[in-house]
């Protein structure tokens, strides 16, 4: 059974976001990392780059496939998880913690966050 945390919002593409001191931390869900398999490489955007909601911000490669990762929130990347360069397996081991991908300075958090799923809706999406 996959872990779904109540303190964050979810996209239908299985990314999560959580607001922290005006910034938004983004990662992929426990359900998603489990489906992907062992993650061996993560490619993230340069800090400072801006994205619109729905745009691909990078890729996650597992032993079996490569997937684009999307941001459900518009804004500018202010930090990326440098630890994933050496330890991409953190995405599997701790998807809601040390396996986060980027932090974004959002431009329209209130409106875009409302369009995302809460934990209950996300549990329903993944059938749990």
């Amino acid at each position: 059974m996959s872990e779904v945390r109540d303190d964050r919002r979810y996209s239908k593409e299985h990314e999560w976001v959580v607001q922290e001191e005006g910034r938004v931390r983004l990662g992929i869900t426990d359900f998603a990392q489990n489906e992907l398999g062992d993650v061996i490489f993560v490619e993230l955007p340069e800090v400072g780059k801006g994205f619109h909601a729905g745009e691909a911000i990078g890729t996650v490669e597992s032993v079996k496939s490569v997937s684009d990762v999307y941001t459900p929130i518009s804004g500018r990347v202010v930090e990326k998880n440098e630890a994933l360069e050496q330890r991409p397996e953190l995405v599997n081991q701790d998807p809601y913690g040390e396996g986060w991908l980027v932090k974004i300075e959002p431009t329209d958090w209130d409106q875009e966050a409302n369009q995302l799923l809460d934990a209950a809706a996300y549990r329903a999406l993944i059938g749990e």
């Binding site: 239908k12 593409e13 299985h14 992929i28 359900f31 998603a32 489906e35 992907l36 398999g37 691909a56 996650v60 597992s62 079996k64 496939s65 490569v66 997937s67 684009d68 990762v69 999307y70």
Partner: peptide, 14 residues
Amino acid sequence: TAQRWIGGLAGVPS
């Protein structure tokens, strides 16, 4: 063999 998925993560119905 190899794969690439866009529009949602690999292994997840979309």
